[in-house]
Amino acid sequence: MNIKIIVRGKAKGTVLYTRHPVNFLGGIDKKTGQVRDRNHDLFGKSIRDKILVFPNGVGSSVGAYTIYSLKYNKSAPLAMVCLKADITTASGCAISNIPLVVAEKKEYESLKDCQEITVDAIEGKIL
């Protein structure tokens, strides 16, 4: 299993899976965790208390504060799994203590929506 640890931690929860990049600043409601970007396939769903599986973050540099706001408002994901960790997502997760790992493509694509998984970002495993 090829998992790269970006922010250490461990979390167990339900996968919320998307193939689309996430724009945290414009795309997510920082109070509730709801996806409010109408063009996103997760539109209307909430990332709160989920294991968010997404390719990478895009958009404004201020998105890092959106991730921190989600944590502050108790609406953050339990952990994040991505294909390519961008600076905005990595820095946002780092100050919010949200475990973040990068998975290889094969590993990433084997994850399914609604699946129960444990992200172990200490040992570097997804179970």
Binding site: I5, S60, S61, V62, Y65, S69, A85, I87, A90, S91
Partner: peptide
């Protein structure tokens, strides 16, 4: 974290930082 994310080998000095995240509308409470 960003060093790991971007595959950096080390930290280097920078001379000037320009910050975003100043507008209350974007960073909130």
């Amino acid at each position: 974290a960003i060093g790991e994310a971007t595959g950096a080998d080390k930290l280097i000095p920078v001379e000037w930082a320009h910050l975003s995240g100043v507008n209350y509308n974007t960073i909130g409470d």
